Amino acid sequence: MPTALKSLLLFVRRYSVVAVLLALWQAVVAFGLLPDYLLPSPVQIVAAFIDDFWLLMNHAKYTLLTALIGTLIGLLLSFVLSILMDLSAGFKEKIYPLLLLNQTIPTIAIAPLLVIWLGYGILPKVVLVVLSVFFPMTIALIDGYQSVEKEQLNLFKSMKASTYQSYRYLKIPSAMGYFFTGLKVAMSYALVSAVVAEWLGGYHGLGVYMTRVRKSYELDNMFAVIFFISVLTLLLIGLIKLIERRVLAYQPRD
């Protein structure tokens, strides 16, 4: 069977349930079982997306910029914090409860405080993204460092490798699989956190767009931006998977 046909069959099998649900949704609205002003049909949502395409693209670039800046800062903090926690059990014992506490605070609860303290610019949004992403990244990296076998560590010690060399050539490469797993989770958190922060104040971004169409009861546009955010998240996760395959392909194998 040709590769193209195999890919097509795989695509149909994977998304057949989604297609059936969309068809049922369209039928429910088309036959008047639910009024379209309460539940827009998929066709209406697509039309709304096309009508506001360039406006959505303009808002999306601000949301993506916020999410990417926050994620990069979160990654840097995660690497520093995870190494410190891996080096010192006492430091880990003191910091770990704070990480758990940060994770238990709902994003929607802390976002208004950040806006009050830091204003309506990009800063509170970036801070919220950082708070959302650095926990899964830090935990993933720590688990990666601890996955290294003792025999390998003992070998490095017997060769008088420095701490830097141990991390550079052993622990960090061993943690790459965990790193990318945490990064995929963090990226989904990052985009959602950026949108939530934009709900509460700002001039640009998909969250601002959502607030405006909600106030005017344009539910077709509301659904359009919701699906758009979902697609953006899937695309970013797909990009991370592609980078992961490229990076791990160069990892040494046992």
Rank of each mutant, 00 (worst) to 15 (best):
P2G: 14
P2D: 15
A4D: 11
L5W: 10
L5D: 07
L8Q: 09
L9S: 08
R14V: 12
Y15S: 11
S16F: 15
L22Y: 11
A23D: 02
L24W: 08
Q26R: 06
Q26T: 06
F31T: 14
F31G: 02
F31A: 09
G32V: 06
G32Q: 06
L33N: 05
L34E: 13
D36G: 11
D36L: 08
Y37H: 12
L39G: 07
P40K: 08
S41I: 04
V46G: 12
V46D: 05
F49S: 12
I50D: 07
D52N: 14
D52M: 09
F53A: 14
W54F: 15
A60H: 09
Y62P: 00
L64N: 10
G70W: 03
G70F: 04
T71C: 01
L72M: 08
G74V: 02
L75W: 00
V80S: 01
I83A: 10
L84W: 08
L87W: 09
S88Q: 05
K94A: 11
P97Q: 04
P97C: 03
L99H: 06
Q103D: 06
T104W: 10
T104R: 09
P106E: 07
P106M: 08
I108A: 14
A109Q: 08
I110W: 11
A111L: 07
L113T: 13
L113A: 15
I116M: 15
W117A: 10
L118A: 08
G119I: 13
I122E: 02
L123N: 05
L123G: 05
L123F: 14
V129M: 07
V129D: 02
L131C: 05
S132H: 01
S132I: 03
F134K: 03
F135N: 02
F135I: 12
T138G: 06
I139Q: 00
A140G: 09
D143A: 14
D143Y: 08
Y145G: 03
E151Y: 04
Q152T: 13
L153H: 10
L153A: 06
L155G: 06
M159R: 13
K160R: 14
K160W: 05
A161Y: 02
S166V: 12
K171Q: 07
P173L: 10
P173E: 07
S174R: 03
A175R: 00
Y178P: 02
T181F: 11
M187N: 01
S188W: 06
S188N: 09
L191I: 13
V192G: 05
S193R: 03
E198C: 08
H204L: 15
G205W: 01
L206H: 03
M210L: 14
M210F: 10
T211V: 15
T211I: 13
V213A: 10
V213K: 03
V213R: 07
R214I: 07
S216I: 04
N221E: 06
M222T: 11
F223I: 06
F223L: 10
V225C: 02
I226S: 07
F227Q: 00
F228E: 04
S230P: 06
T233Q: 11
L239Y: 02
I240E: 05
E244M: 03
P252S: 02
